[in-house]
């Protein structure tokens, strides 16, 4: 025991508390544990409970009852829910790879820039600093306004028909993706730039001296070394894309029809606006489950790829 090794007596007038190390750690952890329990674990458990009841915020004078798996059964048999799930997956698959691609290309280009790098960094940081609601309104509802918006005006001036950016199901999803890619590619650029700066220059230089081409160097040396940070960035964006709600709400409200409604928007509508906390909770848990499975699979794949690369 460390205390037994002490040989110097305590100074006079100093009150000593001998607290066991483990206890001391728990004491220090207690505030965070309390906060986590109250602000995270309790709501998560409560939401799980709500998903098994018929709890409704605005139903006055009717007792809440335990309904077992009813909400989940309703969810799985609900075509509207599956439509929102499909929209969410399509959105995620549409935006994340595109953001990664744009981010990687620009990060590699900027990696070779020696002058004005700070300016570019600030430049690319700017879209991230603007609220998605503002982005959706300014770019979406104003630039892509179908009637008198500048993009359609230009298209018509060139002699073509205006495009129904927000009122045709496919175009509406495309427009939302364009806006999200515009805003969040910057995040990829910054993350991947940071990753690239961690790749030792001498490795690339050595490969170059050995006659490796740019692509060989990129795929055999740069990319494997950037992979951990790229995987983190991808995972963050995948989770964000699964939770998309703000730009859809401002741009299309989930329409036309249900063409752009995401799972999170459906949860908001059912649980927050509609007061149907039970059904909203079951949807939220389903989304959480999908994200956990998807995130876990993605991380496993990434680990496997990294270990293969090391070998």
């Amino acid at each position: 025991m460390a205390t037994a090794q002490r040989s110097v007596p305590p100074a006079r007038g100093v009150l000593q508390f001998s607290i066991h190390d483990r206890l001391w750690k728990w004491l220090l952890l207690l505030p965070s544990l309390l906060m986590t329990t109250v602000l995270f674990i309790a709501p998560v458990v409560w939401t799980l409970y709500a998903a098994f009841t018929d709890l409704h915020l605005f139903r006055v004078g009717v007792e809440t009852e335990w309904v077992g798996l009813y909400n989940f059964q309703k969810l799985l048999g609900n075509s509207s829910f599956w439509r929102t799930a499909r929209n969410t997956v399509v959105f995620m698959l549409g935006v994340v790879p595109m953001q990664f691609l744009i981010g990687m290309v620009l990060a590699v280009c900027l990696d070779n820039v020696t002058r004005g790098l700070k300016l570019f960094r600030t430049w690319f940081l700017m879209p991230l600093m603007v609220s998605p609601v503002v982005v959706a309104f300014v770019i979406g509802r104003m630039l892509f306004q179908e009637d008198i918006g500048p993009i359609n005006s230009l298209i018509r001036w060139l002699g073509f028909e205006g495009i129904p950016w927000l009122t045709h199901p496919n175009w509406a999803m495309f427009t939302i993706m364009v806006i999200d890619v515009w805003q969040w590619s910057s995040f990829m650029i910054l993350m991947l730039m940071a990753g690239l700066q961690g790749v030792p220059y001498d490795l690339r230089e050595a490969a170059s001296i050995d006659g490796a081409s740019f692509w060989q160097t990129f795929f055999r040396i740069t990319l494997p070394l950037v992979l951990p940070i790229a995987a983190t960035a991808l995972l963050i964006r995948i989770i964000d894309a699964f939770k998309v709600v703000d730009i859809i709400m401002v741009l299309t409200g989930g329409g036309p029809g249900q063409a752009t409604e995401s799972v999170t928007l459906a949860i908001y509508r059912a649980g927050v606006k509609g007061g149907d906390l039970a059904f909203g909770s079951s949807q939220a848990y389903f989304l959480l489950l999908v994200m956990v499975v998807f995130g876990g699979a993605f991380l496993a794949l990434t680990r496997r790829t990294m270990s293969q690369t090391k070998d």
Binding site: S80, G254, P256
Partner: peptide, 14 residues
């Protein structure tokens, strides 16, 4: 919300 969803689907020819 329920009515807006149905009407919006019809408006989009879904």
């Amino acid at each position: 919300d329920a009515l807006e969803l149905g009407v919006s689907k019809a408006m989009a020819n879904e």
